[in-house]
Design a protein around this nucleic acid. Structure first.
Length: 502
RNA sequence: GGUCCAUUCGUCUAUUGGUUAGGACACAAGAUUUUCAUUCUUGAAAGAGGGGUUCGAUUCCCCUAUGGACUACCA
């Protein structure tokens, strides 16, 4: 049997990083077994629908180079791939459930249900209460028809038989037994938008799309028994997919599921891409904008809840897909370790070629670097890349190559600018003027010889020199900096520093 | 409140009945670097608690505790 898995996000906003991880696991699983990976848009919630969300989802996976075999953007033989476009398909199965008396129509108002939930302990719409409610079981056929033709709002509820044991066979959690008496008669269809709810729609679609494995977040575990019942009611028990419920991503320092607010407080992104909220006009930046490399994000995410136990940490996407297996997934919730994500990105930046990184750097700081020579940028990247975690850090680490320091960092001045510095650096300028070949090796030799002849302190001279060129006690090898800056600029900067700091 | 899931260093995890409980991130110290980083070396750091089962339990079972999810005409 050919493996077919799906990622089925709801287009209600930007994709959560946990959702990206779920998609990744599905993708790796499909790749490993040479199966199909399907994108399905679960847009049965009209009230929370956000039109830009689908584009955002597709853009995210394009950036990550995670490709779908089927989906609304790339077609396939099992479409349409948006649930809102599948209304007619669902109708048939809803009628089937109704006619077989496995579901019923309910007219109870939201207020009435809320009231009962508040006032009756552990109130549940189920076998014990359904005969006291307003539904097609308690109303006459005539009355039910009348209400429907009157356009009264109604829902269709699944009729759960109590006292049954439902068995979930989960690839990650093994066998779970649930007593159906603890389940309620869930709403599976709502007349307000003529659409099924997630539970019904996803079961029908998973069946019709021949999904073999449902790999999703743990938050779905409690409703899985309901899904199994729907498969049974529809006569599909032989083709129930294999379930695998992934542990959730948790907030690193506080409590609960990873969410937007926690991410903001800890200053790490929770979305893969930037998201602009059209209502609040708020800009929330994502992993891409911070300067994450997609490969690094994928590697980090892959190891959040899964590990091939060989102590390896860095994996290419191909390695991941050959090694991946669901039974190696952990079962416990995972606190999101942003430090480790950072470390992964650092590793991947070191791995990439200077030219590739230079392109990203250029793209990230297009306005600042527009007139710069590309080869020079690549050389600078080579010099500073080992001190950088994110693409955005490149500017902080290399700005002095492009702009002369405007001020000199106070602490560095106190530490490295001595009384004799002005005189010594003036002499250094004279020396530099006499050197025609400004390569770092020649510079180093000449400067060191001069220092030795004069009996100066190397560190004092060079630190003061660095301060005047960089504006702070940071940066790569000083002779590289001098070479990169060139004769004229170097001398100008030293003279300026002498003027300002004397 | 009810149902379900989980519990090894601070964090992510390895070890699925016998180990000095291993690795990585973070942290600390040292080395390298004329600066700041990088890098290298070293260190500190763990099987929630209580009962069983067993010659032997981190590993299997039960209870308690703690954490998490779900409990919508949301997915």
């Amino acid at each position: 049997m050919k493996v077919r898995v799906r990622f089925a996000p709801s287009p209600t906003g930007p994709l959560h990083i946990g959702g990206v991880r779920t998609a990744l696991y599905n993708y790796l699983f499909a790749k490993k077994y040479h199966g199909s990976f399907i994108l399905r848009i679960d847009d049965t919630d009209s009230a929370r629908f956000v039109s830009e969300a689908e584009k955002y989802i597709i853009e995210t996976f394009k950036w990550l180079k995670i490709t779908f075999d089927e989906g609304p953007h790339c077609n396939g033989n099992y479409g349409p791939y948006r649930q809102s476009e599948r209304k007619a398909i669902y109708r048939e199965y809803i009628d089937k459930l109704l006619s077989k008396n496995l579901a019923y129509i309910a007219f109870d108002t939201y207020e009435d249900l809320e009231h009962k939930r508040h006032n009756i302990p552990n109130f549940q719409y189920d076998a014990s209460t359904r005969m006291n409610m307003i539904n097609s079981l308690t109303l006459s056929k005539k009355e039910t028809k009348k209400r429907i033709s009157n356009n009264d709002q109604y829902v269709i509820r699944i009729k759960v038989t109590p006292g049954q044991t439902i068995v979930i066979n989960d690839l990650i959690r093994n066998k779970i037994n649930i007593n159906s008496s603890t389940l309620d008669d869930k709403v599976i269809y709502k007349s307000s938008n003529n659409l099924p709810t997630y539970h019904l729609a996803s079961v029908i679609d998973d069946h019709l799309m021949k999904i073999t494995h449902v790999i999703r977040g743990e938050e779905w575990l409690p409703s899985t028994p309901l899904h199994i019942i729907i498969y049974q009611y529809l006569g599909w028990e032989q083709t129930i997919p294999i379930f695998a419920h992934l542990p959730l991503l948790l907030n690193p320092n506080g409590k609960g599921k990873l969410n937007k607010r926690d991410s903001k407080q800890s200053e790490f992104p929770i979305f893969p891409l930037q998201w602009i909220d059209h209502k609040t006009k708020e800009h929330i930046s994502g992993y891409r904008e911070i300067g994450y490399l997609p490969e690094a994000l994928i590697n980090f995410l892959a190891l959040l809840g899964w590990t091939p136990n060989n102590n390896q940490e860095i994996f290419s996407i191909n390695e991941l897909s050959t090694l991946f297996s669901l039974d190696k997934c952990s079962r416990n919730g995972i606190k999101f370790d942003y430090q480790k994500a950072k470390w992964f990105n650092h590793q991947y930046i070191q791995q990439k070629s200077d030219e590739d990184i230079a392109k990203l750097f250029l793209h990230h700081y297009a306005n600042k670097l527009e007139n710069q020579n590309f080869d020079r940028i690549a050389k600078i990247v080579r010099m500073v890349k080992n001190r950088v975690n994110f693409i955005k850090d490149f500017w902080i680490e290399s700005d002095f190559f492009f702009i002369a320091p405007i001020r000199y960092e106070k602490h560095s001045v106190q530490k490295h600018w001595k009384i004799e510095s002005s005189i010594q650096l003036t002499e250094l300028c004279t020396l530099l003027t006499s050197i025609s070949n400004f390569s770092s090796k020649i510079l180093e030799k000449a400067i060191k010889t001069w220092i030795a002849n004069k009996n100066y302190h190397t560190s004092k001279i060079m630190n003061a020199c660095r301060l005047s060129l960089v504006g702070a006690a940071k940066g790569p090898n000083i002779f590289y900096i001098i070479e990169m800056l060139g004769k004229e600029e170097t001398i100008t900067r030293i003279k300026k520093a002498i003027k300002v700091l004397m």
